[in-house]
């Protein structure tokens, strides 16, 4: 692409070369892990110990410290995948393809956690494990979108083609997510006008909010660590025959 300044494109080119990226990821992961553990510890301490008990829901509300960050991440990771997909399609950047593929199972994991915790939370709140609540339903469809990405990648044998296919699917999915979200919302008000959702109210006490935000940031760091690890593995798998992998393996042996 000629409209990108040369130094910028050179920088991206270098960082995105597999051996360079591999070394960089190796260097960053310990630091990221340390920050993640710190944030997680602080968030859990604040959320489970310092934050007051809710006057309506008692202690069962504390599941939000897992549920809400996981739900946020489930969307965040999908958007990241779409961005990576766009980069992979336009600039044919191998690293973007690898990041996209590595993100999918992690995003699906977050979505699954959000669904399970949402359902656990629903038991004391609604008295049943599953309610066709707008948020849970959207989350369920999002899980299907993730599963589609993962299966499509698995089904196409040529991995470069598979990565292109998945990039297209992620972009199509990200355009559809808001439409799905609003349609489900509308459907929900049509069929179930009276669901009580505590999250609708932004009037959450500051001692409850701070741990929530800490947990949200901790989850982002967790995603970074996980995606880098998965991307390293994916790179090794893809480039087994290349020289830098052979060199590295020799050095370690």
């Amino acid at each position: 692409m000629s409209w990108i300044p040369a130094p910028v494109s050179r920088f991206f080119h270098r960082t995105s070369s597999p051996p360079h990226f591999y070394a960089l990821a190796d260097r960053f992961i310990p630091w990221l892990t340390a920050i993640f553990l710190l944030l997680l510890g602080a968030g859990l301490y604040g959320g489970l110990y310092l934050a007051p008990t809710d006057y309506q829901q008692g202690d069962s509300y504390r599941i939000i410290y897992i549920h809400v960050p996981a739900a946020w991440m489930s969307l965040f990771v999908y958007v990241m995948m779409a961005i990576m997909g766009g980069i992979a399609l336009v600039w044919r950047m191998k690293l973007a393809e690898v990041m996209l593929i590595s993100s999918a199972p992690i995003g699906a994991g977050f979505t699954f956690v959000a669904l399970v915790t949402g359902s656990l939370w629903g038991k004391p709140m609604w008295g049943t494990w599953w309610v066709w609540d707008a948020r849970l339903t959207s989350e369920l469809i999002l899980l299907f979108l993730y599963l589609g990405v993962i299966s499509l990648y698995g089904a196409i044998e040529d991995k470069r083609s598979a990565a292109r296919a998945v990039s297209i699917l992620a972009l199509v999915g990200v355009v559809n997510i808001p439409i799905i979200h609003y349609s489900v919302e509308w459907w929900n008000t049509l069929h179930q006008p009276a669901t009580v959702s505590k999250l609708d109210k932004p009037s959450i006490h500051i001692t409850m909010l701070v741990p929530l935000l800490l947990m949200a940031i901790a989850f982002k760091f967790y995603y970074l660590i996980a995606v880098l690890q998965a991307a390293k593995l994916e790179l090794l798998k893809r480039e087994t025959s290349s020289q830098w992998v052979k060199n590295m393996l020799e050095k370690q042996a």
Binding site: I141, F144, G148, S151, L169, N176, I180, V184, W186, W187
Partner: peptide, 17 residues
């Protein structure tokens, strides 16, 4: 099978409206 997995979630808004 894969086709249905990919397409059906995208059909949700159409179905709803």
């Amino acid at each position: 099978m894969l086709l249905s997995l990919l397409v059906l979630p995208l059909y949700v808004p159409v179905l709803i409206f």
